[in-house]
Design a binder for these strands. Structure first.
Lengths: 199, 199
DNA sequence: TTGTGAAAACTAATTCGATTAGTTAAAATT
DNA sequence: AATTTTAACTAATCGAATTAGTTTTCACAA
């Protein structure tokens, strides 16, 4: 007989991702995961330190995949078009990997180097897109926060089934992104003009 | 000797709220709650059906309190000022009752009448505030979704310590709310050209 | 080919939190 | 004062995560 089963961290993460995305992150348990992998629960401990660490790894995967989606969307685009594209990519990531995304917002290990680096990549990508507007540095950061807040809020609420009204959700999304884009235009104060805002 | 302890659903909810707000919703357990109430865990089952029901009750409290905060903020205000006020109230609620708010987004029982009614109240309140802009009906709903998304996103990210850059968070918030308000103004299409405007 | 060591599976046992069953004490009501 | 009800309690069960300790398989060197 060959070895009962051939496990591997990446196989484990893949199956865990499937469970989290399909059944919800809270349904992900060592027991269920072991069952799907046709292995006894303790076997998983040869590859990871426990459920919590597993979720943290998923969190990292989630942010990396988010960056991947957004990067792909941003390639070859700039300005308003780029903002629309990365926003759609964000929403798409959350729709396609709700469990992974959930992990990335609920189990981020603030001390993890890899996670921080992935998060930083996302922020940098958005800042780069905003570069086209020549905003003041601080303003650009405020806008990144705004876009991120909106995207996280919108997709989270959609995931929890929170939009009750019978009105097309995708339409809301694109209208609101456009609204935000107008806001950026309004906030545009060229660096070259170098205005000082003190308060 | 008098009865060992005097329990009561409202006392239980109050203590549970304290724990959830101070230590995080995930730290709330029957065991810890019983300990804080100086009672044995099983005693709590005389007053509620379990941990899950408890969290659902907290969710309801959370939405009710959110409405309460926003309503108080909206009184006597209208237009842009009202939007700023209810937005600040939202953020304040999340800051003062992170656990309660968390419960309301993570454990809403979609079938609960009381919860639905409380949520509906919040939506109605915001719609009422937006009335001042005489938006098209659909547009108004899109804007409610936008404001809600932003507020939920911003406060959630703040709670998880997600704003890493060293830039004042309150300033971001007020700038972004103003940006959103400009967006509403831009979206303003009068339902009825004969209606009087506020600004 | 065979023996050995490491990796990674396994079984068995522990722990901890939630929950249920069944008992008893206090309070309220007649 | 007796009885009924409420709400505490103890004891027991259950399920999930984890740890301990054992055994199987595989890679590789003699």
């Amino acid at each position: 007989m060959s070895r009962r089963i051939k496990l591997d961290l990446s196989i484990i993460l893949q199956k865990a991702t499937e469970i989290a995305d399909e059944q919800g992150l809270d349904q992900l348990s060592i027991g269920l995961l072991a069952e799907k992998l046709e292995v006894r629960p303790p076997s998983l401990y040869n590859h990871l330190d426990g459920l919590n660490e597993l979720k943290q790894k998923l969190a990292i995967q989630g942010v990396k995949k988010l960056h991947e989606y957004m990067l792909r969307a941003a390639v070859g685009r700039s300005g308003d078009e780029a903002i629309r594209a990365i926003s759609q990519a964000y929403l798409q990531l959350v729709r396609q990997h709700p469990g992974l995304y959930d992990a990335s917002t609920r189990f981020p290990d603030a001390n993890d180097q890899e996670l921080q680096q992935a998060q930083e990549s996302v922020v940098q990508l958005v800042l780069q897109v905003l570069d086209a507007y020549h905003l003041q540095e601080e303003t650009a950061i405020h806008m990144v926060r705004g876009l991120r807040s909106f995207l996280h809020g919108f997709s989270s609420i959609e995931q929890m089934g929170g939009f009750g009204m019978p009105l097309d959700i995708n339409k809301s999304f694109s209208i609101l992104i456009n609204t935000f884009i107008e806001g950026i235009h309004a906030a545009t104060i060229h660096k070259d003009q170098n205005m000082e805002m003190n308060d």
